[in-house]
């Protein structure tokens, strides 16, 4: 039950620390949105190079929960779809694989906005 919890904690934490370092050590013009985009694209590139999967194998949620895992998921989805459907898969694979995450986030966004008011 507690297998891999510590590695997930350490690797996940380190991935976040890297982002914190980027924020602290770069000019103010690097905003949270830039970081999020960099992580998704970075995760996608690492995944394309075949370097992210070993990290997932090692750290589990420590590698899939950060947004770089989102990029990894997109690319793995594309790879799988290309294997099955060829060229068409290039365009369908990414969003298909990540559909659950985006859909849940949008749904929750809508629901929460309906129920709650911003507290400020």
């Amino acid at each position: 039950m507690l297998d891999g919890l510590l590695t997930a904690f350490v690797i996940g934490g380190l991935i976040c620390v890297l982002a914190q370092l980027i924020i602290e050590l770069t000019p103010y013009s690097i905003t949270p949105a830039h970081i999020l985009v960099c992580y998704v694209v970075g995760g996608a590139v690492l995944s394309g190079l075949g370097w992210y999967q070993p990290l997932v194998d090692f750290a589990g949620a420590g590698a899939t929960v950060p947004l770089s895992g989102f990029g990894h998921m997109l690319v793995q989805g594309v790879f799988e779809a290309v294997g099955e459907e060829g060229l068409k898969g290039v365009f369908t694979g990414g969003l298909t694989a990540s559909a659950f995450g985006i859909t849940v986030a949008l749904m929750m966004g809508f629901l929460v906005a309906m129920i709650f008011d911003p507290k400020g």
Partner: peptide, 20 residues
């Protein structure tokens, strides 16, 4: 008004960003 200014000039008030 803090929140009115914040949402207009920076981020949504409920977004978890660290301020410099």
């Amino acid at each position: 008004h803090h929140d009115a200014a914040e949402r207009q000039l920076r981020y949504p008030t409920e977004m978890g960003v660290q301020r410099t």
